[in-house]
């Protein structure tokens, strides 16, 4: 969860309230916690600021919203400073902001052989280490399926593709290319070979997506589909937090309608407990990949309709997964 530092300067009315009732200093703590924030440290200061709170909040809006509570607005001025952990900050300023890729050679036959040779190292080793159980359902739907296609999945963890890849037949997965954030996975100048852009393109089959790149972000996936490749996209755009399935972006539908290729939705279950956003270490646990019916859009389908069709299919699987999770939790708590 993102961290924030909040500095507060009391008005005279705030100081009077504090003098009459010192406990009112704690009201602010409760006001912050009402917005799902967790207080890490709190201090009373001597100097140009009067109070300092260090807290974790789900996002900028909730951090800001908590300061509009009555406890604040009538008694003090506030300044919220989004904070970056110093280790991460040091890493960020050491890195180049330049990104590499895409590498069109990644669709060549020899690159597919490299991916096959590295398959154990890239996927099997990690999934055995991280998934205590790895179920795959609905693979029969892809038995006679030929590409090119667009595979879409819900996104909650960096381990999503490790879970998903097992559900795909070899003819799809060796020719599958995965959109990944350029600013995270394609930065130039990394020391580790496995983090270099060419390695991501060759071994992991990733290609860079520049966030906020608009319609140009679809140029390379268009080229991949034109050349018979399959692509994997996470239409939520970024990893979802908690139990939500975020709204889908339209890029997937634009590509599918323009190129006349089907969408293969795969719902991934259990991954948000493995390594959700904000957690550095993976916690081993059971996961499952549910292959849903491939979606072929009838001629004349509009982009928003297509996005809605894909979202509805995933939403149904998502609600079923949440119901299973609640039933398991209920069962385990009563036993």
């Amino acid at each position: 969860m993102p961290r924030y530092v909040m500095l507060m300067r009391d008005h005279s009315s705030g100081l009077k309230a504090l003098r009459d009732n010192p406990q009112s200093a704690l009201d602010i703590r409760h006001a912050i916690e009402r917005w799902e924030a967790k207080i890490i440290a709190s201090y009373r200061l001597l100097g140009e600021w009067d109070q300092c709170y260090i807290f974790d909040a789900p996002d900028n809006f909730k951090a800001y919203r908590s300061t509009l509570a009555q406890e604040f607005s009538t008694t003090s001025d506030t300044e919220i400073l989004p904070a970056v952990d110093l280790d991460l900050f040091e890493r960020l300023i050491s890195q180049s902001a330049k990104t590499g890729g895409p590498h069109p050679w990644q669709i060549k036959w020899w690159a597919q052989i490299v991916r096959l040779l590295f398959y154990y190292r890239t996927y099997t080793k990690w999934s055995r280490r991280t998934f205590t159980r790895h179920d795959v359902f609905g693979t029969e739907k892809l038995r006679h399926f030929r590409g090119p296609c667009i595979v879409v999945a819900n996104h909650t963890s960096h381990y999503d593709q490790m879970c998903l890849i097992k559900a795909l037949p070899w003819r799809i997965k060796l020719n599958l290319f995965i959109g990944a954030a350029a600013d995270r996975w394609f930065l130039e100048g990394r020391k580790e070979i496995s983090l270099r852009p060419w390695y991501q393109s060759l071994v992991a089959g990733l290609y860079p997506i520049h966030r906020g790149g608009g319609s140009r972000a679809l140029d390379y996936p268009r080229w991949l589909l034109d050349n018979g490749a399959n692509i994997l996209l996470f239409p939520e755009g970024t990893r979802a937090r908690g139990r939500t399935l975020s709204p889908f972006k339209h890029g997937v539908s634009i590509l599918a309608l323009e190129k006349g290729v089907p969408i293969v939705p795969i719902y991934l279950e259990g991954l948000r407990h493995i390594r959700p956003p904000g957690r550095k270490e993976a916690v081993p646990g059971p996961v499952a990949a549910h292959v849903l019916d491939p979606i072929h859009f009838p001629p004349g389908t509009k982009v928003p309709e297509a996005t809605e069709m894909v979202y509805r299919a995933m939403r149904k699987a998502h609600e079923a997964a949440l119901a299973r999770e609640d039933a398991t939790r209920g069962g385990s708590s009563t036993s």
Binding site: A25, S42, Y43, R44, L45, G47, W49, C52
Partner: peptide, 8 residues
């Protein structure tokens, strides 16, 4: 800017 701090 140094500000002496007391735990709340």
């Amino acid at each position: 800017t140094t500000l002496p701090a007391i735990g709340i």
